[in-house]
Write a protein that binds this DNA or RNA. Structure first.
Length: 884
RNA sequence: GGGAGCUUAGCUCAGCUGGUUUAGAGCAUCUGCCUUACAAGCAGAGGGUCUGGGGUUCGAAUCCCUAAGCUCCCACCA
């Protein structure tokens, strides 16, 4: 125990306990008889550095894991990182550039060496940062999506799916990233609204002096035009049947085609067709067998096929072409135009639709069962509104482009023979054997076989994650996979519901015939208090490690969780962490108080303590029940708030105030024992949310032996509670409040004892005596008297139709008192009115259920009684000319 | 263009199948206190016609319609 001071200092404590937990392997898990509770981490990119989104996401996972552990599950949280092909490769390329190295001048092997070196050096940063947060991952099980056995599983899956016909190779229009020089999937394209221009360009009709004007946002693609399309019903263009047009600048003759695809109302109703550079044009090209002219190099510059401006970048070419068109008199007009453009998620480069040979994974047969499992709630989404999103996407799912023109990743296991034929196999040896078998007449050596240059999409390894971390692909019946799978819950962001969540469900059903997780908890986006997304470029994202340094991991965890129901964005404000830190401090000081007491074996346990202990125990039992419900529904912030109030309001503000001994007096041993016991239970309930301070105090509360930890204690047993007792206690606290209000308004020091008179027949039941004892302690009452008539010189209040009197020397302003009473009376009358109106409505009395009517009747009689009392008070006060 | 969701106190949010709701919480605010655990605190107080308008019902924050504002997702409109 460090020196006890009034300010809690997490820094001296957190690292110590984390090291202790690691040392004793408390996070570790191996299969046993207990039920399993598994979470696999959404693997952060190896390039990643901890940001606020990770903080939120991983705090939630840690809370769920720790809670499950204490609930008697064999809980396992599997950590790991993702190789993130594009992001990492871009990073390594940039780093090499700094060193004066050009990726293109390196061999594949050389580049990969650099990449691995980079990942050895920097790849684990984010996981170390998670330790600071208190993450209770089983680090011995840390996986990386490019670990040899993980990669092997990916290759196995590719080969198997290929043999089943679910993976195929084909020429398609793909989203090309001219900066990263790779195709990317539809999900990696982000569409943004941009201000651009609509260019109206005229094409000469061959063998006439006529012109046709088309509207385009991309005049540079004119160089690749191979047709102009108009609507068959468009009267403006009927005369163009069988005509040809001349493409400006390149003087190519192209046909006019007629297709209903064209929107007659847009622009001039004539559409230029560039099959190589637009998906719709491509489709038209297929339909009308148009020539396909690719005018771009992979890096987005014009190639030889463009004919002019060769080598110029596509955007520079746009300006150049515009000028050329204008000079030739073919630019009719240019107007401002808003349209959506696709950008690469990774490089933010404008996507270029490009025709290329790629590998695809067929989705429809995989998607169908995966859709069902969510729609029938076998997999539950929290919040469930994401079911709609999921349904929509899964019902219209398109094939997945899984090849990437990169080096960092699992290389496509397709092997090409010199003549262009290929086989798909796990490795070169198998490929060779297979090729021999399939092409017996071909003459080739093993060294003639060349593996495909491309790697697979990162998500093609991540979709296997819940299986592959347990080696469930290569070894489908091993002990781990059968014990830990399906996992309990996936905690992730809604942005990757298609990238990842949907595909994991498909993979789980395909390879293990079972769902990968029972629940999915979608976190929101972390925003600043101005509702702006936290981002590097805005500079509004605090460094989580700085926050931990300032407020402690427990404080930050509190801040993250305090206001973030599933699916809701978290409006982060440093103020929340401050609240968390204050809470730490509050608990810390409660601990100081209790541990500072002298214990006496002679003193009897006072009645007020006995009563308060009984109450506190029952409040804990009641709260435990609430917590179970909150956790079941993933209402984590509500769960935290529930404990927060239990500790701050009930335990500190009320309970400790009752049981704490008078100044410099000792506490009796029974009370001490029970207080420690109660404190311990509270720490257990709080532990999943604030692991460090709870461990520190739990260790200090009683003598513990090395190797003990709060982490592995079971949550407190729930002995049940009496709602009647709790509500009586609650009412007593209302009396306390009123007495305090009188003290506050009349400036009566808490040191001056007061006499309380209750206008009621004497109640000396055990229960009432107990409650009175507590009340006396909390309000510093010298006596509690029962009477049937009012004495002079008192201030009074009414609760539950019982009048309470406190004698007060300074009687204060009678007018003011009258005014207050009158206001209270008015309120009561109005209330009675509304109740009476309800009750005199025959339809209500006959229509409403009996218990509802009874409630109203009770309200009515209570209100009547209250009015009577208030009226009497007012009469007393105004007839008595000068009280006291 | 299609779809989903949101709008309750200054802020962030609860409010489950309509009925102990003339609406709760935390934070913030205000007042009084450096009271012998804690000023990162204690005690007390104020604050909302539940976005507007209609409707259903004995009864609506809750269900329906409608208007406005905001947010997100999906889609190949040049």
């Amino acid at each position: 125990m460090s020196e006890i001071v009034s300010k809690y200092d997490p820094r001296s404590i957190e690292d110590k306990w984390y090291a202790y937990w690691i040392e004793h392997d408390f996070f570790g898990s191996v299969p046993d008889e207990r039920p399993s509770y598994t979470i696999v981490i959404p693997p952060p990119n190896v390039t990643g550095v901890l940001h606020m989104g990770h903080m939120l996401n991983n705090t939630i996972q840690d809370i769920l894991t720790r809670r499950a552990r204490m609930k008697g599950f064999n809980a396992l949280w599997v950590p790991g990182t993702d190789h993130a092909s594009i992001a990492t490769e871009a990073k390594v390329v940039a780093l090499l550039k700094e060193k004066g190295l050009d990726k293109n001048k390196l061999s594949r092997e050389e580049f990969l060496e650099h990449a691995w070196e980079w990942r050895e050096k920097h790849g684990g940063i984010i996981l170390k940062q998670l330790c600071k947060l208190g993450a209770s991952c089983d680090w011995k099980r840390t996986k990386f999506t490019m670990d040899p056995e993980m990669s092997e599983a990916v290759i196995d899956v590719f080969v198997a799916l290929y043999r089943e016909g679910l993976i195929y190779r084909g020429v398609r229009m793909v989203n090309w990233d001219p900066k990263a020089l790779t195709a990317i999937s539809d999900e990696e394209v982000i569409y943004k609204e941009v201000d651009s221009k609509l260019y109206h360009v005229r094409y000469k009709v061959d063998e006439t002096d006529d012109y046709v004007t088309v509207a385009t946002t991309r005049p540079e693609t004119i160089l690749g035009d191979t047709a102009v399309c108009v609507h068959p019903d468009d009267p403006r263009y009927r005369h163009l049947k069988n005509r040809e047009l001349i493409v400006p600048l390149v003087d190519r003759k192209v046909p006019v085609i007629f297709d209903e695809y064209v929107d007659m109302t847009f622009g001039t109703g004539a559409l230029k067709v560039t099959p190589a550079h637009d998906i719709n044009d491509y489709n038209l090209g297929l339909k009308y067998k148009l020539q396909v002219i690719n005018i771009f190099n992979d890096n987005g510059t014009l190639n030889e096929a463009a004919g002019i401006l060769v080598g110029m970048d596509r955007f520079a070419a746009r300006d150049a072409i515009t000028i050329l068109l204008e000079q030739a008199g073919n630019l009719v007009k240019v107007e401002p135009y808003q349209n959506k453009m696709g950008f690469s998620e990774r490089t933010n480069e404008v996507i270029e639709p490009k025709l290329s040979m790629q590998w695809f994974c067929k989705m429809d047969t995989l998607a169908k069962p995966a859709l069902e499992k969510v729609m029938n709630d076998e997999i539950r989404f929290f919040p469930d509104k994401f079911k709609n999103t999921y349904f929509h996407w899964m019902s219209n799912v398109k094939d997945w482009c899984i090849s990437r023109q990169l080096w960092w990743g699992q290389r496509i296991p397709a092997y090409y023979l010199p003549n262009g034929e290929f086989v798909v196999a796990k490795n070169i040896d198998e490929a060779y054997d297979l090729a021999r078998e399939q092409f017996p007449r071909l003459d080739f050596q093993k060294t003639d076989i060349k593996q495909d240059e491309d790697v697979m999409d990162t998500w093609f390894s991540s979709w296997l994650w819940p299986l592959s971390v347990f080696d469930g692909i290569r070894n489908p019946e091993n002990e781990d996979i059968n014990y830990y799978y399906p996992t309990a819950v996936l905690v992730t962001a809604p942005e990757i519901i298609f990238f990842w969540v949907a595909r994991m469900i498909m993979a789980g059903l395909k390879w293990k015939q079972a769902i990968p997780f029972r629940d999915v908890y979608f976190t929101g986006i972390v925003r600043d208090h101005l509702h702006r997304k936290m981002s590097k470029s805005l500079g509004n994202s605090p460094d989580p490690l700085d926050l931990i340094q300032k407020y402690g991991a427990d404080g930050v965890r509190f801040g993250m969780l305090c206001s973030s129901p599933a699916g809701n964005d978290l409006l982060y404000d440093e103020n929340l962490c401050e609240q968390g830190r204050n809470f730490n401090n509050k608990i810390w000081n409660a601990f100081r108080l209790v541990k500072g007491w002298n214990i006496s074996h002679e003193v009897e346990q006072p009645l007020h303590s006995t009563t308060a202990i009984k109450w506190m125990q029952q409040r804990i039992a009641q709260t435990s029940t609430d917590l179970d419900i909150h956790f079941e529904k993933y209402r984590l912030s509500e769960a935290l708030m529930t404990i927060y109030k239990l500790i701050w309001d009930d335990f500190c503000s009320c309970f400790l105030e009752v049981v704490k001994p008078a100044y410099q007096k000792p506490v009796d041993k029974d009370t001490y024992r029970d207080v420690i016991d109660i404190f311990e239970k509270l720490l257990l309930l709080l532990h999943p949310f604030m692991p460090f301070i709870t461990e520190e105090l739990w260790q200090g509360l009683k003598a513990r032996t090395i190797g003990e930890t709060i982490m592995l204690q079971p949550t407190p047993a729930n002995p049940g509670f009496s709602p009647d007792f709790l509500s009586r206690f609650e009412q007593m606290l209302k009396v306390v409040e009123n007495i305090r209000r009188i003290r506050a308004t009349k400036n009566i020091s808490p040191k001056n004892a007061l006499e309380l008179t209750i206008l009621q027949a004497k109640d000396d039941t055990d229960m009432q005596c107990s409650l009175n004892a507590v009340m006396s302690k909390l309000c510093n009452l010298s006596s509690i008297r029962y009477d049937n008539k009012k004495s002079e010189g008192c201030l009074s209040f009414i609760l539950q139709n019982i009048e309470y009197l406190i004698p007060v020397a300074d009687h204060g302003n009678r007018e003011e008192e009258l005014k207050k009473l009158q206001a209270e009376l008015d309120y009561a009358k109005k209330f009675l009115d509304s109740v009476t109106r309800k009750l005199s409505n025959e339809k209500f009395v006959t229509g409403a259920p009996e218990h509802v009517v009874n409630i109203e009747r009770k309200k009515q009689s209570d209100a009547e009684a209250k009015i009577k009392l208030l009226t009497k008070q007012i009469a007393d006060l105004s007839t008595c000319p000068s009280q006291i």
